[in-house]
């Protein structure tokens, strides 16, 4: 954490330099590509742009190194705690008290908040599931995927698929926002109740040792399955395929065509 004037200055300067350098790199790459004609990249052209960016690169690197050295010279400490969410606070508070026999206005309020949260959860998860299912069906059966226009087909398929996926994830933002507000109201209700009534403490958690340890069983099953799969893979040539690919440069994987 920056606490002296010089540290704050370095932090600010580093921030500005890194952001500007990042933008400059992207702009230069785009400029190289769009003004380069049939073969936009060559060692000479790239070298020319690197010469232009040399000074900002060196300054940014210098600031970054200075900041890291400052950090090393300071005592190791935690980066600071993030604030807890209302749902975490609620769970923590509920775990301390036995609220099973709660009744009255607050109990009714809590029941109402929980039901509303549950409803929002169902709507949000159902909407996400529906959208994701549609995306999979679209990609599997409807979208055009050819080899001649490989990148174009993949891009146009995902021009539809990715925004839909963003919506499917984005529906959870209002759900979480509502859930946080609801948890805050519930927490306030519980605190009011605890303040006005005698509420027993929650019983300490006791490890149910007699129950089978499902995690251990799952572990053994997965280990056994993985060893069987590996042996099957070695016998059916799968391991040889991994080697065959790995000893050749995957030019498309590293952006080289």
């Amino acid at each position: 954490m920056a606490n002296s004037k010089y540290e704050k200055l370095i932090a600010l300067a580093t921030t500005v330099c890194i952001i500007l350098l990042g933008i400059a790199l992207i702009v230069c790459t785009a400029h190289l590509y769009f003004t380069g004609g049939a073969q936009p990249y060559s060692r000479e052209r790239v070298g020319g742009y690197l010469v232009i960016l040399a000074a900002p690169l060196i300054i940014t690197a210098g600031l970054a190194v200075a900041g890291v050295l400052m950090r090393i010279m300071q005592k190791k400490e935690a980066d600071g705690l993030t604030a807890r969410t209302n749902s975490e606070l609620l769970e923590s508070f509920r775990s301390r008290f036995d609220l099973s026999s709660m009744e009255g206005f607050e109990a009714e309020l809590i029941r109402k908040e929980r039901n509303n949260r549950r409803l929002f959860d169902i709507i949000a998860y159902a909407t996400s599931a529906l959208i994701f299912s549609f995306v999979l069906v679209y990609l599997g059966f409807i979208a055009e995927f050819t080899i001649d226009n490989l990148n174009g087909d993949v891009l146009s398929a995902f021009a539809l698929a990715l925004p839909l996926c963003a919506i499917a994830i984005g529906v959870h933002i209002p759900r979480i926002y509502f859930a946080e507000k609801s948890c805050k109201r519930e927490l306030e209700a519980i605190k009011r109740y605890v303040k006005e009534n005698v509420v027993p403490r929650a019983e300490k958690y006791e490890n149910p040792k007699k129950k089978p340890d499902y995690a251990l069983i799952a572990r053994y099953v997965i280990i056994a399955a993985s060893i069987v799969f590996i042996i099957l893979g070695i016998t059916n040539g799968g391991m040889k395929d991994v080697l065959a690919k790995a000893v050749k440069i995957c030019t498309e994987c590293i952006g080289l065509g």
């Binding site: 890194i18 952001i19 350098l21 990042g22 790199l25 992207i26 790459t29 785009a30 190289l32 590509y33 073969q39 936009p40 990249y41 060559s42 060692r43 790239v46 990148n151 030019t251 498309e252 590293i254 952006g255 080289l256 065509g257």
Partner: peptide
């Protein structure tokens, strides 16, 4: 290998720079 660089490299390099920043 410079002759192999094209739109794919431009996209991937821009993405890599964005992630690193």
């Amino acid at each position: 290998m410079f002759g192999m660089l094209g739109p794919l490299f431009t996209w991937k390099f821009a993405l890599a720079v964005s992630i690193i920043v």
